[in-house]
């Protein structure tokens, strides 16, 4: 999409949502790093509640060509939901024709509307890789495959750049597994 940018390109908005502790801040950072390396401008914001573990959590990316006029999310083009309880925070914000990705187990009752919902075994895939905690990275792989917002190679490079060496392999496996959930 970024490469096909036309004059009409007004950018797009992504929200990664779930509960605190799911690593959505980190996956938002990974995705932002990938999009930034593609020459795009990314404004990231997230919830900063005192209950950083267990409470509702969101990580938003407003992606534009230059600096965004308004840097906070208002109308979501892409939405990830990793917890049923986090659904309500995006009420009324999902754009027509948006892509909504949900975990098929953690979000049994996904939102309905004028947008496309994809329910995928994200957490299950993470468990099969041996670590539930990489659900966030599996989700990223699936999201870019669905949304076509950046290439897998770009995201992989970004993940390698910002994850500590110790976890790099695990995250790279996770992002690829997520990507393949959609594209294979």
């Amino acid at each position: 999409m970024n490469k096909k940018a036309t004059k009409k390109f007004r950018g797009f908005e992504i929200r990664l949502s779930g509960t605190g502790g799911q690593g959505l801040g980190l996956s938002g950072k990974m995705l932002a790093a990938a999009l930034t390396s593609d020459g795009l401008h990314v404004a990231q914001s997230q919830s900063y509640e005192p209950t950083s573990r267990g409470g509702m959590s969101r990580s938003d990316l407003v992606v534009t060509e230059g600096i965004a006029d308004y840097p906070l999310a208002t109308a979501l083009d892409y939405l990830l939901i990793l917890d049923q309880r986090a659904m309500s925070i995006s009420d009324g914000m999902i754009k027509k024709d948006a892509i909504v990705l949900v975990d098929e187990e953690l979000v049994p009752d996904p939102p309905t509307g004028d947008f496309k919902v994809h329910a995928l075994p994200l957490s299950k895939t993470a468990i099969s890789l041996g670590n539930l905690r990489v659900t966030n990275v599996v989700s990223l792989g699936a999201l870019i495959a669905l949304a076509n917002i950046c290439s897998l190679a770009t995201l992989e490079a970004a993940i390698e750049r910002i994850t500590p060496k110790k976890y790099a392999r695990m995250n790279l496996d996770a992002v690829r597994a997520g990507y393949e959930l959609v594209s294979s």
Binding site: V42, Q44, P71
Partner: peptide, 10 residues
């Protein structure tokens, strides 16, 4: 404000 303070931007 907090919104700008906590915003991560390019």
């Amino acid at each position: 404000d907090e919104a700008i303070g906590h915003l991560v931007d390019t």
